[in-house]
Amino acid sequence: MYLHEVCESQIIHCDIKPQNILLDEFYTPKIADFGMAKLLQLDQTRTETDIRGTRGYVAPEWFRNSSIMPKVDVYSYGIMLLEIICCRKTLDLDQGCVREAILSEWVYDCFHKEKIHVLVKEDRSLGRSTNV
């Protein structure tokens, strides 16, 4: 929110991922590595730029040749949250098929098939088996 709404000029980070989130001594998250960031002028809400980011965290807008908005960072942040919830990387080639190897595709398929419980089947903190 700080980058997109509080800063005088909006900043699109373009590479939100776990490796770029640091914790200070109070465990407050800090965003790092602005090497791919894009600065928006005060009157801009979107921009044109070449594709930027890390495979697996890149929002679909990058592949549609459309204008880029701060929402691309929100997408990347969401993928990062899915990694935490599902205890999986964005790309897991050890899975059986391509759609299961790509985290966002697998989550969508589970949601569409009403099998959300499968997303947390490896989470032992639930105190019960979720392999139903």
Score class of each variant (00 low, 15 high):
residue 2 Y to F: 14
residue 2 Y to W: 09
residue 2 Y to P: 07
residue 2 Y to T: 01
residue 4 H to R: 10
residue 8 E to T: 11
residue 9 S to E: 10
residue 9 S to H: 15
residue 10 Q to Y: 09
residue 10 Q to L: 05
residue 11 I to R: 07
residue 12 I to N: 01
residue 12 I to G: 05
residue 12 I to D: 05
residue 13 H to I: 06
residue 14 C to S: 10
residue 14 C to T: 07
residue 15 D to A: 12
residue 16 I to C: 00
residue 17 K to Y: 13
residue 18 P to D: 01
residue 19 Q to L: 11
residue 19 Q to F: 08
residue 19 Q to R: 09
residue 20 N to C: 11
residue 21 I to T: 01
residue 24 D to E: 00
residue 25 E to A: 02
residue 26 F to T: 05
residue 27 Y to K: 08
residue 27 Y to M: 09
residue 29 P to I: 08
residue 31 I to N: 02
residue 31 I to P: 08
residue 32 A to D: 06
residue 33 D to C: 08
residue 36 M to A: 10
residue 36 M to C: 10
residue 37 A to C: 12
residue 38 K to F: 05
residue 40 L to P: 06
residue 42 L to E: 15
residue 43 D to C: 09
residue 43 D to N: 15
residue 44 Q to I: 01
residue 44 Q to T: 03
residue 44 Q to R: 07
residue 44 Q to M: 05
residue 45 T to K: 03
residue 47 T to N: 02
residue 47 T to E: 07
residue 51 I to G: 04
residue 53 G to N: 09
residue 53 G to W: 10
residue 54 T to G: 12
residue 54 T to F: 10
residue 54 T to S: 15
residue 55 R to E: 05
residue 55 R to Q: 08
residue 58 V to N: 06
residue 60 P to C: 07
residue 61 E to F: 00
residue 63 F to R: 06
residue 64 R to N: 12
residue 64 R to K: 15
residue 66 S to M: 02
residue 67 S to G: 04
residue 67 S to V: 04
residue 68 I to D: 03
residue 69 M to F: 04
residue 70 P to V: 03
residue 71 K to C: 03
residue 71 K to S: 03
residue 72 V to N: 00
residue 72 V to E: 02
residue 72 V to F: 05
residue 72 V to K: 00
residue 73 D to K: 01
residue 73 D to P: 00
residue 73 D to Y: 06
residue 73 D to L: 04
residue 74 V to F: 04
residue 74 V to M: 03
residue 75 Y to H: 05
residue 77 Y to A: 01
residue 77 Y to S: 04
residue 79 I to S: 07
residue 80 M to K: 07
residue 80 M to D: 08
residue 80 M to P: 07
residue 82 L to T: 03
residue 82 L to C: 09
residue 85 I to L: 13
residue 86 C to P: 10
residue 87 C to M: 09
residue 88 R to T: 00
residue 89 K to H: 06
residue 90 T to C: 07
residue 92 D to T: 06
residue 93 L to P: 03
residue 94 D to G: 07
residue 95 Q to V: 08
residue 95 Q to D: 05
residue 95 Q to A: 02
residue 95 Q to R: 12
residue 96 G to A: 00
residue 98 V to Y: 02
residue 98 V to A: 04
residue 98 V to F: 00
residue 99 R to Y: 07
residue 100 E to N: 14
residue 102 I to Y: 09
residue 103 L to Y: 04
residue 104 S to W: 06
residue 105 E to I: 08
residue 105 E to L: 11
residue 106 W to F: 13
residue 110 C to I: 11
residue 110 C to N: 14
residue 111 F to K: 11
residue 112 H to A: 09
residue 112 H to D: 14
residue 113 K to R: 13
residue 114 E to N: 15
residue 114 E to Q: 14
residue 115 K to R: 15
residue 115 K to G: 12
residue 115 K to T: 14
residue 115 K to A: 13
residue 115 K to Y: 09
residue 115 K to S: 14
residue 116 I to S: 15
residue 116 I to C: 14
residue 117 H to S: 15
residue 118 V to K: 15
residue 118 V to N: 14
residue 119 L to M: 15
residue 119 L to I: 14
residue 120 V to I: 15
residue 120 V to D: 09
residue 122 E to P: 03
residue 124 R to M: 13
residue 126 L to M: 11
residue 127 G to E: 01
residue 128 R to C: 13
residue 132 V to R: 05
residue 132 V to M: 13
